[in-house]
Design a protein around this nucleic acid. Structure first.
Length: 561
RNA sequence: UCCGGCGUCGUCCAAUGGCAGGACAGCGGAUUUUGGUUCCGCUUAUUGGGGUUCGAAUCCCUACGCCGGAACCA
């Protein structure tokens, strides 16, 4: 996984910035990046873009490294379960942070010491206004802010108050520590931002050791600096925070290297939502079965769905990195996974909606078998034997009593080839009293063993099939896009109204016996149908498959027009 | 309306003053015992206006459009 160039990676401006810094000899040529998730949810495909960027730079630049740092400065929303899942997901994606797993909370003591230093130097003060007063005092886009009546407290006074804040002498919200910058600044982030707030919450790592917690803007840059990060890469919404990031670091010239922030555009994908808040709503509202529901854009969901790390990395490499707000077409992701699965998945047969076929010219009890390769275009990769007999199953979709124009599957009186087996002809359609087709009576051509007719007649259609007697029952979960709208919730906040009611369907399928030992995580192609992955719910004798992605289907496309 | 950012095929990304190119999508064709794969071909773009230059997607001015910003969130 340490191959830097496993796909054609696009050039990107962030890598260019890093390379230029190396060339200029900044930081002595040292490069350190970091992936800094807040452990308040599961990682999704958008995070994968950031992970591939940050860890990718570390792989592309000799000697560079990338840290994993949990940005856990807000105990009200952060949990250990997320810390665990984030590690699992980054590792699964194929990246390694070595021994460099850190927590912002590891730095609480040092951050606090920096805060005291700023107080002593008169660069920070304790404000005792209410939230409302502070908000009003901060002004607006058009109005400059007003200074707080507490802004002129002496360093000694501030230091004492800060220490008492830490000691727990004040109720939540009674005071905050603010940086003393510029209430007139046109960038509102510079209007005396809050550095610490009082918050009596149990922290997932520090427990009840603290009742004051640092804010992002104060904590993040210093966490970078403490670790020796050189390039702090984040998304566009932090662009307005960069002057503040720099201001804090300017107050502490002792840090070397001094990290610099570079922003890039976060990922948006059609027919998906990548908002943490919305993903949480989907999980908590029961609209999906959990963070790892195969319809979720989470790494855990994609993994369970059957996506491979290679496919996700190839996708990340191909969408590139820029500062433009973009909406990537989900077909690009789907293409990446098909491309990878096409190369690696054995071809097997599974009948999703079984229709019984009886071959009347095969004697009862007679069995036969056909050899079939795992990969038709490369028989050296091995194969298996397919049992065959009088009763078979084909897919209901592959028979039409009244075929549409262009149909070359089975019809009454018509012939098709059974994949890797022989040619059959439909002699008769058996229906129940309601007129539903229950069975097809067919005959096979004994001179077509292997699939080609001895007399040379051409057979256009080839169907997948399984033997009734030897096939295995399997639950197959058919997943489709979670949303039917290209941009869910585009109008207002009604994204739940755009849920695709057909995003999940379960069918009782029959699969070929070679799948008896299939284990969770195994991936196969059901020929003519799609790529499937064995679900963790699967057990021997009770197989469960998830549809990762269907095969491209030009017949369906043609019918849709 | 203030601050910051961004405008290149339908979508995403290149081209860093010198022939606007790739991928996906779409369309057409060839091959095919998967209506899959593979292969070949085609369509389509520099937001508008001015300027600098032998030459501008690229530099300058201007207009317009889109995104982000007024948590004791990150």
């Amino acid at each position: 996984m340490n191959q830097p160039q496993e796909t054609d990676k696009l050039p990107n401006f962030v890598l260019d910035v890093v390379k230029a810094d190396v060339a200029a000899g900044r930081n002595g040529g040292k490069v350190m990046t970091r992936f800094p998730p807040e452990p308040n949810g599961y990682l999704h495909i958008g995070h994968a873009k950031s992970i591939c960027l940050n860890f990718g730079i570390a792989q592309d630049i000799p000697g560079a490294v990338c840290n994993l740092r949990f940005d856990d400065t807000n105990p009200s929303v952060e949990e250990d379960e997320f810390v665990r899942s984030i590690q699992e997901d980054v590792r699964w994606l194929g990246f390694d942070w070595g021994a460099r797993m850190y927590f912002a909370s590891d730095y609480f003591e040092r951050l606090y010491a920096i805060a005291e230093k700023l107080v002593r130097e008169g660069k920070a003060y304790v404000d005792s206004q209410t939230i409302e007063e502070m908000r009003a005092g901060r002004g607006s886009f058009h109005q400059p802010g007003r200074v707080s009546p507490y802004r002129d407290r002496t360093p000694d006074e501030n230091l004492e108050l800060l220490r008492r804040m830490r000691a727990g002498e004040f109720p939540d919200g009674a005071h905050v520590l603010r940086a003393k910058i510029d209430m007139q600044a046109s960038n509102q982030n510079l209007r005396d931002p809050v550095m610490y707030r009082i918050k009596r919450e149990h922290h997932h790592r520090t427990g009840d050791a603290w009742c004051i917690y640092p804010m992002y803007d104060f904590a993040h840059g210093y966490s970078d600096a403490i670790e020796g990060v050189t390039h702090s890469i984040c998304t566009l919404e932090f662009e307005n925070h960069r002057p503040l990031y720099d201001w804090f670091l300017d107050q502490t010239p002792e840090f070397d290297p001094r990290p610099r922030q570079t922003e890039f555009a976060r990922l948006n994908l059609t027919y998906m939502t990548l908002s943490k808040r919305r993903l949480k709503l989907l999980v908590e509202g029961g609209h999906v079965k959990g963070w790892d529901d195969p319809r979720m854009p989470t790494i855990a969901g994609l993994r369970r769905r059957g996506y491979t790390p290679e496919a996700i990395r190839a996708f990340a490499d191909r969408i590139g990195v820029s500062k433009r707000n973009s909406f990537v077409d989900v077909t690009l992701l789907e293409h990446a996974v098909r491309e990878d699965l096409n190369a690696r998945c054995r071809r097997v047969m599974g009948v999703l909606r079984p229709l019984r076929v009886v071959l009347e010219n095969v004697p009862e009890g007679q069995e036969d078998a056909f050899d079939a390769p795992w990969f038709a275009d490369d028989p050296s990769r091995g194969g298996r034997s397919l049992p065959f007999g009088r009763a078979l199953f084909i897919d209901r979709e592959d028979f039409a009593e009244v075929p549409p124009k262009g149909w070359f599957r089975l019809t009454p009186g018509g012939e098709v080839r059974l994949r890797n087996a022989c040619i059959i002809k439909c002699e008769r359609v058996v229906k129940d009293e309601r007129g539903e087709i229950v069975e097809l009576r067919c005959s096979w051509d004994p001179d077509s063993r292997g699939g080609n007719a001895k007399d040379g007649r051409k057979i256009k259609g080839t169907l997948h099939w399984v033997s009734e007697k030897h096939s295995l029952p399997a639950e197959v979960r058919l997943y489709d896009r979670l949303f039917r709208a290209e941009n869910p919730g585009e109008e207002g906040d009604e994204f739940l109204g755009d849920l695709n009611p057909a995003s999940f369907e379960v069918v009782q399928a029959r699969v070929e016996p070679s799948l008896a030992g299939a284990a969770p995580g195994d991936r196969v192609q059901f020929e003519r149908v799609g790529y499937f992955c064995v679900d963790p719910d699967s057990k021997p004798g009770a197989l469960v498959f998830n549809r990762t992605i269907g095969l491209k289907d030009s017949w369906a496309k043609q019918q849709g027009k």
